[in-house]
């Protein structure tokens, strides 16, 4: 494996009981590469990216993350040690669909908790770093508020700060904008785009096709519990080769067109 590879997934399979979540998923992510995973709901996209930081164990296959090897529970490899998991999770940041900010802590405390608890960063230093991140996101004024006082977009940007405070080398995003009101999506996408420009390695599950086309180097289409097709973003989104990818994209495009038509019609009613 070349040093250039950040994440190397080989033959990954996972079941819950006898339900197949995904099977035989293989994927290589280079350093600084941005990979967008798209596909219909319920094909295991979210579960898949949770395997990369081992929030979910998997049955078969292996994942090499920044040189640490994780094995499927059914494939006979040794289970990861606690130290290994801490190492991986320190270097792999994650942002969730539902933000999951710690409700009982202020914005600032949300961000410093990880560095102080896991990396034993002195408080003053952690606070300084956190304030720097908040400033970058334009959230300085929110530092001492509780999460629920913030809008969804603000909460998600705080969640990004919380992940970045650990100085990760890889960032995982699980549908970061799908719980947001449409007018709040832009700020979050902008923040993610800035990270991409700075060369952060990223894997993101998303429903924002335009964003994927703009920001991602590689697009992965997951359908029927496995990877249907992957390749350069533009090629996949504009000229998919497999039938399953074509079907999915056609459905998404039709839905977007319907929505536009509906909006136009509504505008017409008002006018």
């Amino acid at each position: 494996m070349s040093n250039d590879v950040a994440v190397d997934v080989r033959g990954l399979s996972k079941h819950f009981g006898d339900r197949v979540i995904f099977k035989d998923v293989s994927l290589q992510v280079r350093k600084s590469e941005v990979v967008a995973i798209i596909g219909p709901s319920g094909v295991g996209k979210s579960t898949f990216i949770r395997c990369i930081n081992y929030l979910h164990p998997f049955d078969e296959g292996s994942i090499t993350v920044l040189g640490h090897e994780l094995h499927g529970t059914a494939s006979g490899g040794p289970p990861p040690t606690r130290a290994q998991l801490r190492e991986i999770r320190t270097h792999v940041g994650m942002v969730f669909q539902t933000f999951n900010l710690f409700q009982h802590l202020s914005v600032l405390e949300n961000i410093v908790l990880g560095p102080m608890d896991v990396k034993k960063v002195p408080r003053a230093q952690a606070v300084e770093r956190a304030m720097g991140l908040l400033e970058m996101m334009g959230l300085t004024a929110r530092a001492n508020m509780y999460p629920r006082r913030l809008s969804g977009g603000e909460q998600q940007r705080v969640a990004i700060c919380r992940a970045l405070a650990m100085d990760p080398q890889i960032m995982l995003f699980d549908e970061p904008t799908s719980m947001l009101d449409p007018e709040l999506v832009g700020d979050v996408l902008e923040a993610i785009q800035r990270l991409a420009q700075e060369g952060m390695t990223m894997i993101l599950v998303t429903h924002e096709m335009m964003f994927a086309k703009e920001v991602a180097d590689t697009v992965v289409v997951m359908a029927d519990n496995t990877i249907a097709e992957m390749g350069p973003a533009r090629q996949i989104l504009e000229a998919p080769r497999t039938l399953r990818a074509q079907n999915f994209l056609a459905r998404v495009l039709r839905r977007n067109a319907d929505e536009e038509a509906r909006l136009t019609a509504m505008g017409g009613d008002e006018g």
Binding site: N53, L55, R82, L85, R86, R89, T90, G93, M94, F96, T98, N100, L101, F102, Q103, L113, G114, D117, V118, K119, A159, R162, A163, M166
Partner: peptide, 17 residues
């Protein structure tokens, strides 16, 4: 909420922390 545990685990915090 499970998401709270998940978020803490994702930043590398151990079970007891």
């Amino acid at each position: 909420a499970d998401g709270q545990r998940e978020a803490a685990t994702a930043v590398g915090m151990g079970f007891l922390s």
